[in-house]
Amino acid sequence: MSTMWGLTVRGICEYENKILLLKIRSKSAHHAGKWEIPGGKVKKCEFFDDALKREYLEETGLDIDIVSLYNVVRNDYTACKTGEEVKSIQLIMKVTCESDEVAVSEEHDDYGWFTQEEVDEMIENEFLTLPAVNAFKK
């Protein structure tokens, strides 16, 4: 069986020196209750920048501008629906927004704007998903 490769794109959004994180819903099959960087999978034939803007709008209600590439991490997982092993490349982008008023989707229970120090503490206390932890490592 051949290995599936996936592409995920996430955006680290800073607004007034605080970083937006979303709390994964408690009923989720993966990382329930952990905090993550907004974003998601790139669909077939979709440009990754369009995917990030779409995912951000779906998950947060925010319109974003993409500024730069921040990091690239790999996150392997087993697909829930098919049971296939997926090797996922995650592009972590720096993004900006015009507002801090977030409307979370059903995928998440909560959101928060955190200082870099607070994010570092959350990483230490294992409140973030492993891909998010790796994304913040430079």
Score class of each variant (00 low, 15 high):
residue 116 Q to C: 03
residue 35 W to T: 13
residue 120 D to Q: 15
residue 118 E to C: 07
residue 123 I to D: 04
residue 26 S to L: 13
residue 9 V to L: 09
residue 113 W to E: 08
residue 18 K to N: 12
residue 60 T to P: 10
residue 38 P to F: 05
residue 77 Y to E: 09
residue 102 V to H: 01
residue 128 L to Y: 02
residue 69 L to R: 11
residue 70 Y to W: 07
residue 53 K to S: 04
residue 66 I to G: 06
residue 77 Y to K: 03
residue 40 G to M: 03
residue 59 E to D: 15
residue 18 K to Q: 14
residue 30 H to K: 08
residue 7 L to I: 11
residue 18 K to I: 13
residue 88 S to W: 00
residue 81 K to Q: 14
residue 5 W to I: 06
residue 6 G to S: 02
residue 37 I to Y: 03
residue 103 A to S: 12
residue 97 C to N: 05
residue 49 D to S: 11
residue 115 T to V: 14
residue 111 Y to H: 15
residue 63 D to H: 09
residue 91 L to H: 04
residue 56 Y to E: 05
residue 45 C to Q: 12
residue 37 I to A: 05
residue 19 I to M: 12
residue 128 L to T: 13
residue 22 L to Q: 03
residue 115 T to E: 09
residue 25 R to L: 09
residue 27 K to S: 15
residue 100 D to Y: 08
residue 110 D to R: 11
residue 92 I to E: 00
residue 102 V to C: 06
residue 30 H to P: 01
residue 23 K to W: 05
residue 44 K to G: 06
residue 65 D to S: 07
residue 48 F to T: 06
residue 74 R to F: 00
residue 72 V to D: 00
residue 3 T to N: 08
residue 114 F to P: 06
residue 116 Q to M: 14
residue 65 D to T: 09
residue 72 V to G: 02
residue 24 I to M: 10
residue 69 L to K: 14
residue 128 L to I: 11
residue 121 E to I: 15
residue 72 V to C: 02
residue 79 A to I: 06
residue 87 K to F: 00
residue 109 D to C: 12
residue 101 E to P: 02
residue 118 E to S: 12
residue 74 R to Y: 01
residue 70 Y to D: 03
residue 11 G to N: 08
residue 110 D to C: 14
residue 110 D to Q: 13
residue 41 K to I: 00
residue 66 I to S: 05
residue 82 T to R: 05
residue 101 E to M: 09
residue 50 D to K: 13
residue 102 V to K: 07
residue 95 V to T: 11
residue 108 H to Y: 15
residue 40 G to D: 01
residue 18 K to T: 15
residue 25 R to A: 09
residue 129 T to Y: 02
residue 34 K to P: 09
residue 48 F to M: 14
residue 6 G to Q: 00
residue 31 H to S: 09
residue 51 A to L: 11
residue 128 L to K: 01
residue 129 T to M: 04
residue 32 A to V: 10
residue 93 M to H: 02
residue 96 T to I: 15
residue 98 E to K: 12
residue 44 K to V: 14
residue 76 D to W: 01
residue 83 G to D: 09
residue 33 G to Y: 11
residue 57 L to D: 09
residue 18 K to E: 13
residue 111 Y to N: 07
residue 57 L to Q: 07
residue 118 E to F: 10
residue 61 G to M: 11
residue 24 I to K: 08
residue 70 Y to T: 01
residue 52 L to W: 10
residue 95 V to S: 04
residue 96 T to K: 05
residue 121 E to L: 14
residue 87 K to A: 01
residue 73 V to D: 01
residue 39 G to R: 03
residue 82 T to H: 07
residue 23 K to T: 10
residue 36 E to K: 13
residue 128 L to R: 00
residue 107 E to Q: 12
